[in-house]
Design a protein around this nucleic acid. Structure first.
Length: 429
RNA sequence: GGGCCGGUAGCUCAAUUGGCAGAGCAACAGCCUUUUAAGCUGUGGGUUCAGGGUUCGAUUCCCUGCCGGCUCACCA
């Protein structure tokens, strides 16, 4: 090791380095090539719980706690599946191995442990260790065990530390993976074809957001990272596919907060020959499948709210929701003058907007949206704020569009696609 | 981008009016055969985010910058 690198080590890293050298001097390779393992921690626990006798199980993972009681030591080993207690007795593993464990192993080291699964007198399922081995010596100490890692910068920039010390972070990764996989399975079974469309686009569209700009050197041309997949997916319908979807990373050069990230994942799907009621059925079924996969139930708890995702979800028109929430009937106040008059008559505290459609949307988000806790399809939006949706047959000011809400959060957006080229042309003139 | 708050030991946090920079966990040396935030005794560990200013003296007050949190705007 160069002196440069050694000098950068802090006290604890120096100590761990010395332990590693000691192990090597005794002929123990601190970084062996592979580890034989017969069970993950979860598999060992599950097998024992089922009543099976688990003997000579070989586990591998990080040593995450150690409680030395003299001739007996307890600890925990954590692998990708779970955490399991280790019980290490000096008289079982032998004096040399026991001393090595206590002197030269550190929290955070990857170790292999072989033994029988038992239950201690406090009832915890535990590996009674007959043999331990080092799988990889770590030089950096782990974050503190009790308070855990809280510094947000470290949690985000060194996500591996967050995963190691915060169980919730692990759970979120697992839930996310199950959700994405349930989404694929559900859509595949419904006859959708998964596709990938361009991330680098010469013209961006499908949403109203600032793009990230990059440059193609050989073409000497600026390109944009996509802000949405919509336009390319629709072209696949034109090309003859009836049902397509894409799970994609998209990029928006906008503000960052708890619900917004410049780089984010979304799913878009398009289905021919149906309308927005078809999509509502699809969406509630999709959420139900994802919730079942991630939580095993459709009764979920989110930020203090008990949510029931069981289909069918409530459907309510934007008009009725606004009327209930603040007493304005947007089907009566159909122009800016009468809408403003009604708002002033009721003395509503609401931000002003230049057009009727935007003013209606503002009334909705100010008064109606906060009331939407249980899953709800808000249907029938103003045409002005939905330029790609088909108009209602009986009301040209309103289009067949919905947004799904739950726990005051938007879950999705869809509409009966406008496929009349003359109407579409007229709307952009 | 605006406003407010913050950055101190490996981690989580203290530090009175500007006056020797501390605790718990982690680490190190010990004791302990049923612990699980184990317990007990002892020890070491600091460029107080960076740079500048005021002062006899700055973690503390002022300025600039960097990074983060909350919030408003934008966006989904």
């Amino acid at each position: 090791m160069s002196n440069d690198l050694l000098a950068r080590f802090n006290e604890q890293e120096q100590q761990r380095y010395q332990k590693m050298l000691r192990l090597r001097e005794r002929g123990i390779e601190p970084y062996p090539r592979r580890a034989a393992r017969t069970h993950t921690a979860q598999q060992a626990i599950d097998a024992f719980t089922r009543g099976e006798t688990v003997q000579g199980a070989r586990l591998a993972g990080r040593l995450v706690s150690l409680r030395d009681m003299g001739k007996l030591t307890f600890g925990h080993l954590q692998d990708g599946s779970a955490k399991i207690q280790l019980m290490i007795r000096k008289d079982v593993v032998g004096a040399d191995a026991y001393a090595m464990l206590l002197k030269d192993f550190d929290l955070g080291d990857f170790i292999g442990a072989e033994g029988d699964v038992i239950k201690t007198k406090t009832g915890e399922i535990t590996l009674q260790v007959a043999r331990v081995e080092l799988l990889a010596k770590t030089l950096s100490p782990l974050p503190e065990k009790w308070h855990g890692l809280k510094d947000t910068e470290t949690r985000y920039r060194q996500r591996y530390l967050d995963l190691l010390s915060n169980e919730e972070a692990r759970q979120i990764f697992v839930a996310r993976s199950r959700i994405v996989s349930a989404m694929r399975k559900f859509l595949d079974e419904q006859g959708f074809l998964e596709v990938e469309t361009p991330v680098l686009q010469s013209l961006y569209g499908g949403a109203a957001a600032e793009p990230f700009i990059t440059h193609h050197n050989k073409l000497d041309q600026d390109m944009y990272l996509r802000i949405a997949d919509e336009l390319y997916l629709k072209r696949l319908l034109v090309g003859g596919f009836d049902r397509v979807y894409e799970i994609s990373k998209d990029f928006r050069n906008e503000g960052i907060d708890i619900k917004h990230n410049p780089e984010f994942t979304m799913m878009e799907c398009y289905q021919a020959y149906g309308d927005y009621t078809t999509m509502m059925t699809l969406v509630e079924g999709l959420y139900a499948a994802c919730a079942h996969a991630a939580q095993g139930t459709l009764q979920i708890s989110y930020q203090g709210n008990a949510l029931d995702l069981t289909p069918p979800w409530r459907r309510a028109t934007m008009r009725d929701l606004i009327l209930e929430a603040c007493g304005v009937d947007i089907y009566k106040e159909t122009d800016m003058t009468s809408l403003r008059a009604r708002i002033e008559e009721l003395n509503l505290q609401v931000e002003r907007h230049p057009t009727w459609g935007k003013q209606v949307d503002e009334l909705f988000s100010t008064f109606a949206e906060p009331t939407l806790i249980q899953p709800t399809f808000v249907i029938d939006y103003p045409e002005e704020i939905s330029p790609l949706a088909k108009k209602k047959p009986d009301n040209p000011r309103i289009v067949e569009r919905f947004e799904a809400f739950a726990a005051n959060m938007e879950l999705g957006n869809a509409f009966t696609e406008l496929n009349d080229p003359l109407d579409q042309y007229a709307r952009f003139m």
